[in-house]
């Protein structure tokens, strides 16, 4: 009896059943909804296959919204990478006291999750027309951000500056381990072979870090591209970026064509997916080196 049950089990391995709740859940609430959008992007209203929706992405305000989104994402990812890298380097290479590192990393873990409506208000309260810094600069230095620098928190640069609040910590979080992976012996080997500090950075350290840097840039890009709440809360509908336009489309079909909305969402997935795949691939390359 027992033996029969045993052989039955061997013939019909049932271990995969244990994964079923998870798989069904993820299928129903992640994979299928996404697939629905992706498939819809290639269908007409009555369900036949078409590429027209994708072609139609090139009409109206859609191309410009993608373009602005890409620009904001690139700008915030580039600045975030740069500043985050400098800060991570400062703590990893101990230009600043050693004890700062651990709290900074903890703090970065927190702040990198800080996208959202409250963040928008924080920057509005600081750099907005009557914000803390705006007033401080005006009252003490006679500098008016809007007049002198053309800076407006509700604009392209305003959004970029706001995104930096979570982009910089994310960069620190990801690049700090990569910087720690630079072994002291590499610097010493370069130096004893006659290289200057600059030559070491140009020929050894930066090439080693390059996949990590580029990969993290891609991740930051995707991170900014998908951010919805901060953008809507900050600029309402005044800035024409993809998430805001898609939001309006979902709310009220402003494009007048649901399948065009799918195509727009599909475009978003493609862009964030490409960025993420790039990140994962480059990260694997970097890890191969740092073995």
């Amino acid at each position: 009896m027992n033996r029969a049950l045993h052989t039955l089990r061997q013939r019909l391995p049932l271990t995969w059943l244990g994964l079923m709740p998870f798989v069904i859940f993820v299928l129903m609430f992640l994979v299928l909804p996404t697939m629905h959008i992706v498939i819809g992007a290639f269908q007409t209203r009555d369900g036949t296959f078409t590429l027209q929706n994708i072609i139609d992405l090139n009409t109206g305000t859609i191309p410009s919204s993608y373009w602005i989104s890409v620009k904001i994402s690139v700008a915030s990812a580039a600045l975030g990478s740069l500043i985050g890298f400098a800060m991570a380097a400062a703590v990893v290479f101990e230009a600043v006291p050693r004890w700062i590192k651990s709290p900074l990393l903890t703090f970065s873990g927190v702040a990198s999750n800080f996208a959202g409506v409250p963040l928008a208000f924080a920057f509005l309260a600081t750099f907005g027309p009557v914000g803390l810094v705006t007033l401080f600069l005006r009252n003490n230095f006679g500098i008016v951000l809007q007049r002198d620098f053309g800076f407006n928190i509700l604009s392209f640069w305003g959004l970029t500056v706001t995104y930096l609040f979570f982009q910089i910590p994310l960069m620190i979080l990801i690049i700090a381990p990569a910087l720690e992976g630079l072994r002291r012996e590499w610097r010493e080997a370069a130096s004893i072979l006659g290289a200057t500090g600059l030559q070491y950075w140009r020929m050894v350290a930066l090439p080693i870090l390059f996949p990590s840097l580029l990969g993290t840039f891609a991740l930051l890009f995707a991170n900014a591209f998908g951010a919805v709440a901060t953008a809507i809360a900050l600029t309402g509908s005044s800035l024409n970026i993809v998430p805001i336009q898609l939001f309006a489309q979902i709310r009220g079909d402003v494009l007048g064509n649901p399948n065009l909305g799918y195509a727009m969402a599909f475009g978003m997935i493609v862009i964030t997916a490409v960025a993420n795949v790039l990140y994962i691939w480059l990260r694997m390359r970097a890890e191969r080196w740092l073995k």
Partner: peptide, 26 residues
């Protein structure tokens, strides 16, 4: 001065040729 380290310390981003050539290049 030439030095060989315990943990090799080869530059991981360069192939064997470039590693050996490094000192001459700089």
């Amino acid at each position: 001065i030439g030095m060989v380290f315990q943990a090799y310390a080869l530059f991981p981003n360069m192939n064997v040729f470039d590693n050996v050539a490094f000192g001459l290049k700089v």
